[in-house]
């Protein structure tokens, strides 16, 4: 059983093996396939039409399945690797060890946003961006530039306190836990972190930045925390909702897995802590 750990607690060896597995997936083309899939869903998920990966109740199970698939790809390279998570309520600044040269590298330089250090810098040679929305092939970031503050623990707690999973109209206008966690409404958790990182993380091709996986692993952990806090609150909607993935509807692109299959993360992995 894989255990997902806080990135701040990883050993030097764990960081190196995680990075090496990312670079290997990049080399053999499997990494870019994940970027392609994500961007396709970003562009096709709409508030008034069919929506699966984003702005809908299945945002959380869809990304859970997406991360499981990615984690399995990493483990096919190195069986010891699991996805770490980034608790951005604690590691809130560009000086966090997450952004050090021995892990993800730091923010971009002001001239062109280019990340200049770490294993994913253009100069390192192993991280050319092929699936992209513009001509630039180097990883970019602007940590804290477009929005000053990452979400706080208090803001997270205010969202975890919401008792209803999701509500009609089941999109970016919804009240309830899912849309507040996703960030289209209210204090804005998940979306704001994308904006805070900047660069490719602000775009539909956000998985081009490896921090995408650590961010979503923490969003996924927040879902688990919410479930533990509200054991009587089910995934909604349960049936018969046009354009939306109900509890037992299978999800694209896999077409063989439904939200109901993904509600219990312990079937697939555990976390290092419940908090």
């Amino acid at each position: 059983m894989a255990m997902r750990k806080n990135q701040a607690d990883l050993t030097a060896t764990e960081k190196r093996r995680f990075v090496d597995a990312l670079l290997q997936l990049k080399r053999d083309g499997r990494y870019d396939a994940f970027v392609t899939t994500h961007n396709a869903f970003i562009m096709s998920d709409t508030d008034s039409g069919d929506r699966v990966g984003h702005r809908s109740p299945s945002f959380l199970p869809w990304h859970r399945r997406f991360l499981i698939e990615f984690e399995q790809a990493l483990q096919s390279v190195d069986a010891s690797v699991t996805l770490p998570y980034w608790d951005w309520t604690v590691d809130r600044t560009p000086s966090a060890s997450l952004w050090a040269a021995d892990f993800l590298g730091g923010t971009g330089r002001s001239r062109d946003g280019q990340v200049m250090d770490g294993p994913f810098a253009q100069s390192a040679g192993g991280w050319t961006l092929n699936v992209r929305v513009d001509g630039r092939t180097y990883l970019r970031r602007a940590l804290g530039a477009a929005v000053a503050q990452l979400p706080t623990r208090a803001e997270v707690d205010s969202v975890l306190a919401m008792t209803t999973y999701d509500m009609a109209p089941w999109n970016s206008a919804s009240d309830g836990f899912r849309n507040h966690l996703e960030g289209w409404r209210g204090v804005n958790l998940h979306n704001r972190v994308h904006v805070w990182v900047g660069g490719q993380m602000s775009t539909g091709a956000s998985p081009n930045d490896p921090v995408f996986w650590l961010h979503h692993a923490f969003v996924d952990k927040l879902w688990a925390r919410w479930q533990a806090k509200h054991p009587g609150s089910p995934y909604l909607p349960t049936a018969g909702t046009p354009d939306v993935v109900d509890l037992h509807d299978t999800m694209r692109p896999w077409n063989n897995v439904a939200p109901a299959d993904l509600l219990d993360h312990t079937r697939y992995y555990t976390f290092d802590s419940a908090a």
């Binding site: 923010t107 971009g108 330089r109 002001s110 001239r111 946003g113 602007a142 940590l143 804290g144 530039a145 477009a146 929005v147 000053a148 503050q149 979400p151 204090v187 804005n188 704001r192 904006v195 900047g198």
Partner: peptide
């Protein structure tokens, strides 16, 4: 220039 260091917008 210097945009990457700016950070006064409110979320």
């Amino acid at each position: 220039a210097g945009l990457a260091l700016a950070g006064t917008a409110h979320a």
